[in-house]
Design a protein around this nucleic acid. Structure first.
Lengths: 348, 348
DNA sequence: TTGTAAGCGTTATCAC
DNA sequence: GTGATAACGCTTACAA
């Protein structure tokens, strides 16, 4: 079987052409291109003119063969929510392209046994290096992965890490504070009986949301027990947990789900049970994902700047300001829509 | 400003090492690696043993510099639905990786003026070629893009093309037939008054769905006019169009939306208007996207094998069986869930 | 069937 | 500041 071959692109100008046209050496052209110091203004001008005239663009393959950079940034994805992932991807892409880098995608499955996991990583790294990886959750908290990358001196930036935060650079929001803001919103509306839908154990940030919510309620003076259910971060999980929770007596007047998907599930459970949101019960979520505006009534939730987190992660990776171990926090925003309201008078 | 530099990965075996260890020439190793013919079994065995022992992996940069292949496939994205895009991306990724290729992502904005559009394309192509592109809708029907790629002899495969189908290879489903199947489903339930929510004009496949739906109704004997509204392919568009449609008198007993997002919007509109789905009105969509299971009741829709379409597109690109102009059709499936039922007795 | 030699287009080393 | 010249790791004529 003959391997596939593809036509090369049409002839392009090389560094040689630029050097010849501008009457300088190859190395000088290289200096100009890479913005190296110790180049006279006149030389630089000559070279730049030639580059413009020839419409010259450096060849990535040659650069990465000769040099130590590949001009490729990898985005490591695992088991992603489409909405979340696409936002991150868009953010990373925009920054990467603005610096003349390219974006490579790599999916890895972190649910397999360790040996297999390492094999996947090996396969990714070996035949086509890249200049760094952006790690998305739950990979951001995968210690095996961090070990692997560090052992090979491969740079990375973690998005929404929640574990071992001194470990590597990262971009996050303050999940606990955001959940606390939501707790205050519900409290101020008059709610006093709450349920919280936690996320899967592997999602560390979800635990922070749940804990932050409960802690803030306590701080506000809440003494009643908060119903604690597993919403599984999914619509189906939200339905199941929602049905169980609203069947209790007395039931909650407000439910905080740790992501929007499970919140939508809770709303569906309410609708099945004949409870009107928000008149009979308030429901709120987290993420301000696309589903928050795809349910009726629109979901009260926490906006996190997902795309900006992708941008910031890429920028951090490209900057190389040895910020190891620093987690940059971005702002969140409470988005009050139509799924939360004061509790029914009879229950206030 | 010094450009960022990244550490090279740890020393790896090269083809030279393999040649030395196995006692053959460089070229022979190359032959084995590339699966070229005319290699004796013994030589091949020796080389493969050496490769295994040294854990050798060819360097992509060197290969693409010396040869005509880059081992990179590009996925061209524009204005994507997250769910759809992620599925395509996953499918393309899996096939590409299985052939030792890598996946590069490129977003382009096709809503800008032509000159700017071409500039975007130039920028993508120039400094880092790739061995072919997978085109996703609406890019699959962008004639400017096809011209651009063909002029540069860059291979491509179109996903869900609906225009100029003789133009290049592509992967699609039979949108008209799928819509017709949905029409029969509703007709068989007893519905006789229909509305269809069409998509935006740029999405050519959407028009095929609408037309196929209406044509099948006529074939079945429907004489009443079909209400034709613009659902805009979005949740918001579906709400607006849905409100307008159900306000009519007599209103439809069944609504077919050309994608799931607008179908969900119609459901929300019904819910606002106090109509119960499916008891008072049936609603169905197209795509079997994630939102179809994120609404209540679950949406009756058309499943299209999006991930497989991505796989097939990548396989086509990699095969190089000059199948120019051939569109491969994959199967669809009617997915009957809970949002469709017989019309209310009073209206049957 | 196998091997030799000449690049591919950059960056890096070291002189000048 | 600037410029020869040697890598980088592979593919591809062209021989043998």
């Amino acid at each position: 079987m003959t391997p596939p071959t593809f036509p090369a692109s049409s002839a392009r100008a090389t560094m040689d052409d630029v050097a010849r046209l501008s009457g300088v050496s190859l190395k000088s052209v290289s200096r100009v291109i890479n913005g190296e110091p110790h180049v006279s203004a006149t030389l630089r001008a000559k070279v730049e003119a030639a580059i413009a005239e020839l419409n010259y663009v450096p060849d990535a393959a040659a650069r990465s063969l000769a040099g130590s950079r590949t001009f490729i940034i990898g985005l490591l994805l695992d088991n992603p929510s489409p909405h979340y992932t696409m936002k991150i991807q868009k953010g990373v892409y925009d920054v990467v392209r603005s610096q003349q880098y390219h974006l490579r995608i790599d999916n890895i499955d972190s649910t397999v046994p360790n040996a297999q996991f390492s094999a996947q990583l090996e396969a990714l790294i070996r035949n086509n290096r890249c200049d760094g990886f952006v790690l998305t959750p739950p990979l951001s908290d995968n210690l095996l992965l961090l070990d692997f990358l560090e052992a090979r001196m491969i740079r990375y930036v973690r998005i929404a890490p929640a574990l071992d935060n001194a470990r590597g650079p990262g971009i996050a929001i303050d999940d606990a504070a955001a959940a606390a803001a939501m707790a205050r919103h519900l409290w101020d509306l008059g709610h006093r009986r709450f349920a919280v839908m936690r996320g899967p154990a592997s999602h560390r940030a979800a635990a922070r949301r749940r804990d932050g919510f409960i802690a803030e309620l306590e701080r506000l003076g809440n003494t009643a027990p908060v119903i604690d259910a597993d919403g599984g971060f999914s619509f189906e999980g939200g339905i199941a947990a929602g049905e169980a929770v609203i069947a209790q007596s007395p039931g909650p007047t407000a439910v905080f789900a740790c992501n929007d998907d499970s919140a939508a599930g809770v709303m569906a459970a309410c609708s099945k049970a004949g409870l009107k949101v928000p008149d009979d019960i308030s429901v709120c979520g987290f993420d301000d994902s696309w589903i928050a505006r795809s349910v009726w009534p629109y979901l009260t939730t926490v906006y996190q700047p997902i795309e900006e987190m992708g941008q910031a992660a890429a920028a951090l990776l490209l900057r190389r300001d040895e910020q190891e171990g620093k987690i940059s926090e971005l702002g969140f925003k409470l988005v009050i829509r139509d799924s939360t309201a004061p509790p029914p008078l009879s229950q206030a």
